[in-house]
Design a protein around this nucleic acid. Structure first.
Lengths: 200, 200
DNA sequence: CCGTTTCCGTAACGGTTGTTACCGTAGCAG
DNA sequence: CTGCTACGGTAACAACCGTTACGGAAACGG
């Protein structure tokens, strides 16, 4: 049984290449040949690692979710209390990493693709709801006496603010610089942290 | 000099068709043939009305901006004071019209396209900055004693929240229903309206 | 060292894209 | 009514897309 390959490594390589191509040339530039060229191989290997282009897209989408989840886990684990964790998780999503602009661009690309593809839309909803659940848990830990309604509204508002900042900054980074995003997030969180410090 | 045509009517017809196709099938489904079929003509007329596909795209983008600007003008004109105008303008952008979901989808589509197309990116920035200026003017009228920094941060936060709600609702309307969006916007505006009523 | 078997680069396929050339035709000038 | 001209429908073009078939090469078992 000769010449076995590392399937997982190939899929990761190709998913990363998909990622990069999507960040650079956007959704219309995402072709199998472009991905193959970026990965340093030919379309033959791509079609052997993934049965179809859609499977490659879905795997790359899963990779995006996995990265954000890992980063969010790390941000949460490195924080002492719930308020700090909330700030870290949301701040991490807004601008912290150095080459983070790419991730926003990729996210927007997948979002636009999800509007016309049910499978991608399903992944998007799952990922976003997972993120919402995380933020909801942290907000609830910060403000245990709030009503469920207020918790839900605050959580979804915070997430919407973060995603809005991401999207707008991806398209117009000059108008939405990193420090302004941080300040906007801090102001949005002040209602929660002030509430916590008033109780404490 | 026989058989003259109404160029403006043709361009509007084709822009509307572009709009509809973009809302239904998303960015990848936006082809000249699909636009022509939707407009009830052939690609021949499309290519006579617009020299290239990109010109058609840019014109459709301008149409999107024009619609939102007209609606924002109307919302602002129908309001008595600045606070009401601010709530109306932002509320109009978030969910008021009946078939408003299409507009969000189209907006996301153009945004994703703008990430890889400089001309579209330029239009996006111009439109967004125009909207920012409008909101900034209204916020400044509500809170004349705020510092420029606070005005800017609040304005951009409000716009980011609205766009974030739009984007997330477009992809997951079940999680972001219309009433939740309105409540989120109301809560975000409370800091301004409360400030105004405290002064008054 | 060799045979076998899996892997993957090559190249072609059908289909669709944006774009172009062409010509029938519709409508006004005279 | 007739002729001319701009309009726009038809169809073909090259380029590119995702996908497929095939053959050479590479690596393990014996």
């Amino acid at each position: 049984m000769p010449k076995q390959r590392d399937v997982q490594a190939q899929r990761d390589l190709l998913s990363n290449a998909t990622w990069q191509v999507l960040a650079e040339t956007g959704l219309p530039g995402l072709t199998l040949r472009a991905v193959a060229e970026r990965a340093g191989c030919t379309t033959g290997l791509v079609m052997h690692a993934f049965p179809t282009k859609k499977a490659l897209l879905l795997h790359a989408r899963d990779l995006l979710y996995e990265r954000t989840a890992v980063r969010a886990d790390a941000a949460e684990a490195a924080s002492a209390d719930a308020a700090g964790a909330l700030a870290a998780v949301l701040g991490q999503a807004v601008d912290l990493p150095h080459g983070h602009h790419d991730e926003s661009r990729v996210w927007v690309g997948f979002l636009a693709a999800a509007l016309a593809d049910d499978d991608l839309a399903e992944r998007h909803r799952a990922a976003n709801r997972s993120f919402l659940a995380r933020v909801h848990r942290l907000v609830a830990a910060c403000c245990p006496m709030w009503t469920d309604e207020r918790l839900e509204r605050t959580t979804k508002s915070l997430v919407a603010l973060v995603e809005g900042l991401n999207v707008l900054a991806a398209a117009d980074p000059e108008t939405y610089p990193a420090d302004l995003q941080r300040e906007a997030l801090r102001a949005a969180l002040s209602v929660i942290t002030e509430w916590g410090s008033a109780v404490r």
